[in-house]
């Protein structure tokens, strides 16, 4: 790893006495697809919120291309939250306008192609779309940016198994060359083939991390089997 895109150093986050993240450290190099793995409540979303400057009150250091989370990093990160963040009174095309207005790296033609291929009706209000369609719209807007880092929080959690492949291929086919992808998920089997690196979070701490291929050969197991072993109740 000659250069670092995302640097997380000794990050700790507490909610009162409860520790959500404890001394988490890792780097993400350019051009890598990184799986942030862990069961519900392991701290994945908390970490993603910190990277996206949605949680400001934490200890440790976070740098993206040398910048601490702020206006500069927001220009570089394309974020897919696990919630419907768009105002539901907007029409789909107005949501595209919104992204085009605020993000200089937003590729409108690509967004329109994605909407077409994912069969999202452009004329409808977001509030009139089904939950699945709303998620596809959010994915379209996220992947139509030419960002340095894509951060996707549980992109396949609410999607039926039949649509997962479509979502995953949309993600892989559309992220910009040289940029990196951080995908948080607890559904490993469908996505493990695309990971270059994986980070296992357990109770707010990094339990295991490394190159996906090296971990597979070292443990003689798939990432999914390893995940089940690490998080066995």
């Amino acid at each position: 790893m000659s250069e670092v895109l995302l640097e997380i150093k000794n990050v700790t986050k507490r909610y009162g006495k409860q520790v959500a993240l404890q001394n988490v450290s890792f780097d993400v190099a350019p051009g890598r697809i990184v799986g942030l793995l862990g069961p519900n409540g392991s701290g994945k979303t908390t970490l993603i919120k910190i990277i996206n400057n949605l949680l400001a009150d934490y200890e440790g250091e976070v740098y993206l291309c040398g910048h601490a989370p702020g206006v500069e990093t927001k220009k570089l990160v394309s974020y897919l939250p696990d919630k419907m963040a768009l105002p539901t009174w907007l029409a789909v095309t107005e949501a595209l306008n919104l992204y085009a207005n605020f993000f200089a790296d937003f590729d409108r033609a690509r967004a329109e192609n994605l909407l077409h291929s994912l069969k999202v009706p452009p004329g409808k209000k977001i509030g009139e779309l089904s939950k699945g369609m709303q998620e596809k719209l959010m994915l379209t807007l996220t992947m139509a940016r030419r960002a340095k880092l894509y951060v996707l929080d549980e992109p396949i959690a609410g999607v039926d198994p039949a649509a997962r492949d479509l979502i995953i291929s949309t993600i892989i086919d559309n992220f910009a060359d040289g940029s990196s992808l951080l995908i948080s998920t607890h559904i490993i089997s469908d996505v493990e083939a695309v990971f270059d690196d994986v980070i296992f979070l357990k109770e707010g701490a990094v339990d295991l991390q490394g190159e996906a291929e090296a971990l597979r050969s070292q443990h003689g197991k798939s990432i999914d089997q390893l995940f089940r072993e690490v998080y066995r109740c």
Binding site: N52, E72, A85, P87, F102
Partner: peptide, 13 residues
Amino acid sequence: GDEGYLMFTLPVG
């Protein structure tokens, strides 16, 4: 609310 996930990730102060 949920819209904060968009508003606070827009590149504005």
